[in-house]
Design a binder for these strands. Structure first.
Lengths: 233, 233
DNA sequence: GCAGTAAGAAATGTAGATTATGTGAGCCGC
DNA sequence: GCGGCTCACATAATCTACATTTCTTACTGC
């Protein structure tokens, strides 16, 4: 279920790990960034060639990812990139709203100076990170990292590593959908939206913070629905 | 994240699958049933010998389980059974109460005849399954299966496969704790408790059903806390 | 057109080589 | 003498290469 902090740190410092873990990280990123077609088969040999590794590490990476639902595994038939659908996205957004509402409410209820500092700091970083649309070059990973850091800061005080983990797992999946509509999301005014969420949270206004947070998710969903509808989906 | 229905069916019918999947299932059960000591190292060769398999399938099974947090993986150091602690259990119970409350509320709100039928049926099965304490022989897996089926029926109408999956993942982990205190749980009066939950749910009384459900989890937690305290833990 | 079948492709499993970790004896500095 | 360091060896994880099994597909005959 996502990378733990140790792994993220290790990856950040470029430390050596196992080949299986290296493939796991790259494959994960490629799936999240939409570098594979949804539904596509991930043939072991091809994946091994792509990342310059043997088949065994690839197999281990795929098995890990299958437990995270980031690949579909069919015994004796291989591994596949999970499909995307508006139906699934709706369910995902709905569940995110439920769980992040709880996590945010608990965080606000138990708020500490450290939690507030985290929000202020990660918002500052996020607000100073430019959003790159596909037309401008496309690599938006810095924004993606900071966006996630901000949302994690919001829920970090909820007192449940389980809940934080679930929210992160769903953030991963949401990221997949984000890349199929880079032109509408992230939007330019997202800094304002995030600031409003931050302010409500720091003010201790539980209901307002929850509303603003979930409205953001629902708005993004609606944008995507309209876009798909317009495209004749 | 737990077995999907296809896998459970396949396992139930004894269909052939891969060696990796066979090891995965057995290892999973052994961990849930407490057949390994918490914190214990799972040495590849030993595990392979135990289940009469090669090292590769074991490795794949362990990698899958590591993504479910049912084993801890340390690169280049091996795999370990996750430790148990009262601290972790409290967090787990707290999170279960949050998530199952939502799932139950949504299920009741969207209730359908099919959902009600599922509850009645699984409760009937559960109520007719004897509870075997360790003194009486110990194999309580039939009760365990039906108990889980009942709780799954309660939340099955929530409209989110994500949420159902999360609840099941936590049920798995709760099962580990249950086995360290078989003498207090499952209790003999659990049939009554489950009946009360069912009645509130079928009556459409959201608040009462949620209270009864979460009270059951909290009561079990308290029993365990008292037992550990009495044992001088 | 459909069932059966056989060749090829691909997943799975095994064996052994390779690499990393942990351990303990011996050595150095204090 | 004691604590800490280094280095060699034992143990175990990891990876590669290859063998085996299974699935897919295209072809044949009815």
């Amino acid at each position: 279920m996502a990378l733990n902090e140790t792994e993220i740190d290790a990856a950040g410092r470029g430390e050596k790990t196992t080949a299986a873990t290296a493939v796991y990280r790259q494959l994960r990123q490629d799936i999240l960034k939409g570098n594979f077609k949804p539904g596509q088969k991930l043939q072991i040999d091809q994946v091994a060639t792509r990342y310059g590794s043997g088949t065994n590490p690839v197999r281990e990476a795929l098995n890990r990812l299958s437990s995270e639902h980031l690949v579909d595994r069919h015994d004796q038939r291989g591994f596949f990139v999970p499909p995307l659908s508006m139906e699934r996205l709706r369910e995902l957004v709905k569940t995110r709203c439920w769980l992040e509402s709880i996590a945010l409410e608990e965080s606000i209820t138990n708020r500490t100076p450290g939690w507030e500092d985290g929000i202020v700091l990660t918002f500052h970083h996020l607000s100073r990170t430019p959003i790159r649309t596909p037309e401008e070059g496309g690599d938006n990973s810095e924004w993606e990292v900071r966006h996630r850091a901000f949302h994690n800061a919001l829920i970090s005080g909820c007192g449940s590593t389980w809940l934080i983990g679930f929210c992160n797992e769903m953030m991963d999946h949401a990221e997949r959908y984000r890349y199929i509509s880079m032109s509408t999301y992230p939007r330019r005014d997202s800094v304002v939206e995030h600031r409003l969420i931050m302010e409500a949270a720091l003010d201790g206004d539980v209901e307002l913070a929850k509303t603003r947070l979930t409205d953001q998710y629902r708005l993004t969903l609606r944008h995507l629905e309209e876009q798909v509808a317009a495209a004749g989906g």
